[in-house]
């Protein structure tokens, strides 16, 4: 039988408390989710049980370099998800913009940022998404762009809807946009999700809550930014992204600032 929200919420609370205790005892607040996170049921058989092998810094290793992308890998319309079909998609038009930085605060330049999302009704243009919300013939929900010299990216899209899933009874995902990012080194690879401020579904969602530290969770939530809103057109959200992992060269903190 599928677990209830109350059962999942109790597990979420237990994991948060466990992290809070570890931090209170002097531990480093974890930025990333543990791969073994029971409230997210699909993780049960899909996380390694043995510890990872720690690999020392080795600028000669392939992972300290990474794939490169260029102007041939994108088209002008890829960053505007509202203009990829003949008509306008339904929903609240938004701009999502920010910068991609490494942990030293240096901009990640000329790298690929990819996004995908549900439409305004909470439905993905994916055959396996059978949530009975309408597809939008004018919205696919896929975009990509390259960061500029300041590490900046920007997308125009519509605000995605919340949607149900089958982790437990009455499970709903808060609205989110999936992001995929490359850094200057393969070690900096990141796939994550951006959320919208003030969503009442946050406490119930085991995927967001898999990040058990509150400050780290807050880094997944964009900020409404009125300066990014455009008159008669769209509402603006700012979301900066910091890539973890060693960069191609060791970072000089705050260089370029």
């Amino acid at each position: 039988m599928a677990p209830t929200q109350d059962e999942i919420s109790a597990e979420i609370a237990a994991a948060r408390e466990s992290t809070a205790r570890a931090v209170a005892a002097g531990g480093v607040p974890p930025s990333h989710p543990g791969r073994d996170y029971p409230p997210y049921r699909s993780s049960a058989l899909r996380h390694p049980r043995k510890p990872l092998l720690r690999v020392g810094a080795d600028p000669e290793a392939a992972e300290w370099h990474g794939p490169v992308f260029g102007v041939t890998d994108i088209t002008a319309l890829d960053a505007d998800l509202t203009r990829q079909h003949q008509g306008e998609p339904l929903g609240e038009r938004i701009t999502v913009a920010g910068r991609v930085l490494d942990r030293g605060g240096r901009p990640v330049r000329g790298q690929l940022v990819e996004v995908w999302q549900a439409n305004a009704s909470g439905r993905y243009a994916h055959q396996r998404d059978q949530h009975p919300a309408p597809l939008d013939p004018h919205f696919t929900g896929v975009g990509r762009c390259l960061t500029d010299d300041q590490g900046a990216y920007a997308f125009t899209t519509v605000r995605p809807g919340a949607y149900p899933w089958r982790n437990h009874t009455n499970a709903w995902r808060p609205a989110h946009i999936h992001f995929s990012l490359f850094g200057t080194a393969f070690t900096q690879r990141l796939v994550t999700q951006m959320y919208f401020p003030g969503d009442p579904l946050f406490p119930y969602d085991p995927i967001l809550q898999s990040v058990t530290d509150a400050a780290a969770r807050a880094r997944l939530v964009a900020a409404y930014d009125h300066r990014l809103s455009t008159p008669e057109r769209s509402l603006g959200y700012r979301w900066d992204i910091v890539l973890d992992g060693p960069a191609a060269t060791l970072p000089d903190p705050e260089e370029d600032h």
């Binding site: 942990r103 990819e114 999936h178 995927i207 997944l220 910091v242």
Partner: peptide
């Protein structure tokens, strides 16, 4: 050092976006 943006699962529906 800046704190990193947390990872999140790729989920089930990346198939029409990333490959």
């Amino acid at each position: 050092m800046r704190a990193p943006t947390p990872s999140q699962t790729i989920g089930p529906f990346y198939g029409y976006a990333l490959p």
